[in-house]
């Protein structure tokens, strides 16, 4: 068996057999909770990776679009009886639709202005979550009692929920992986490097940026819906600015532009504070320290972009064979 097959198989075994085995072994609700939260944040980090890491748009409002997905799923489920199967894709689409409306006027802004615009939009959405009591129940949040019903099957065990969340997250990450490790990813990278130059290569810069932003928001919306269904209760505080920063820190610590980096960063920033829970609630300060440390000491991140691309091409077999004369190190 080739090396790339082996790695892929290993990952599948890890996610769908090893982790569940450990969870069943400990058999505590708490561990299931951490595993699902980690999975959701891995998806959030992977989706932010596409906009901020690959396309180079510093996005400070990701948590708000994640919130849009969560609220859409929760409100549809709690008030209109629309269940998981339809609620999750609808949540993703709503987040994508809002992102599209937001992106139309702001995509022409240059780097830090775009960052500030996304911060402002994130805060506006947060104000809506917090204060539009008629729609979002305001600070009290929305309770979602309806269980996780997938295509008519009621899934009510912790293990079942883990499998559903892990499958959706894995599938989404596969899609994001294809987007960032392909020629499409190269096109997005060229925007990050020099958008004026990219336009001289025939790339429609604005359209490309909007695409990246909308796709990323779609997956943030999916993550939000998963969050709403797994916790059963959402409130505005789950989607405030500090959450956007948490997700950004995951991407920065892992390495801007690196998908495996973003996933590692998410795991690290979810699991580390849980392990240090005995010291007190120091999650946020860890986030700050790790972000600062990463920028200062590890500017390429834990798993930098260059190594990530090599990993994807060589180890996961997403590129042509790399031997010279054999034509090719491009993407498949």
């Amino acid at each position: 068996m080739s090396k790339s097959r082996l790695i892929k198989l290993g990952l599948i075994i890890l996610v769908f057999a090893l982790v569940p085995a450990i969870l069943v072994g400990f058999d505590k609700g708490y561990y299931y909770q951490i595993a699902t939260i980690a999975a959701i944040f891995m998806l959030l980090a992977a989706s932010l990776h596409l906009v901020t890491g690959v396309a180079g748009l510093l996005h400070l409002g990701h948590a708000a679009l994640y919130g849009v997905g969560a609220y859409v799923a929760a409100i549809l489920g709690a008030e209109y009886g629309i269940g998981f199967t339809i609620g999750v894709p609808l949540a993703g689409l709503s987040a994508a639709a809002i992102a599209f409306l937001v992106a139309l006027p702001t995509m022409r802004l240059m780097s830090i202005y775009f960052a500030v615009a996304t911060l402002g939009i994130g805060q506006m959405l947060f104000l809506i979550f917090q204060n539009w009591v008629g729609l979002t129940k305001g600070p009290n949040g929305v309770m979602l009692f309806s269980g996780l019903n997938l295509f008519g099957f009621e899934i009510d065990t912790d293990l079942g929920i883990y499998y559903v969340v892990a499958s959706i997250v894995a599938l989404s990450i596969l899609v994001l992986n294809r987007l960032s490790h392909s020629y499409y990813g190269n096109a997005l990278r060229s925007l990050r490097e020099d958008d004026q130059c990219a336009s001289a290569m025939g790339i429609n810069v604005t359209v490309m940026k909007i695409q990246a932003f909308v796709i990323s928001s779609f997956f943030a919306g999916i993550a939000g819906a998963l969050w709403a269904y797994t916790t059963g209760y959402i409130s505005p505080n789950d989607f405030q600015f500090s959450q956007s920063i948490l997700i950004l820190t995951m991407v920065v610590v892992g390495g801007l532009g690196s998908l495996p980096g973003a996933l590692i960063g998410a795991l690290l920033l979810i699991i580390l504070p849980e392990m240090l829970r005995s010291v007190g609630d120091i999650r946020n300060i860890i986030v700050g320290v790790m972000m600062f440390g990463a920028i200062l000491f590890l500017p390429k991140g834990l798993f930098g972009e260059v190594s990530a691309l090599n990993f994807a091409r060589r180890m996961l077999g997403q590129g042509w064979a790399a031997k010279k004369g054999e034509k090719g190190i491009g993407w498949k």
Binding site: S190, M201, I329
Partner: peptide
């Protein structure tokens, strides 16, 4: 594009 490989640079064209 400085942070892309030579091949990836050309592929953008």
């Amino acid at each position: 594009f400085p942070n892309m490989t030579v091949f990836d640079n050309i592929s953008v064209g």
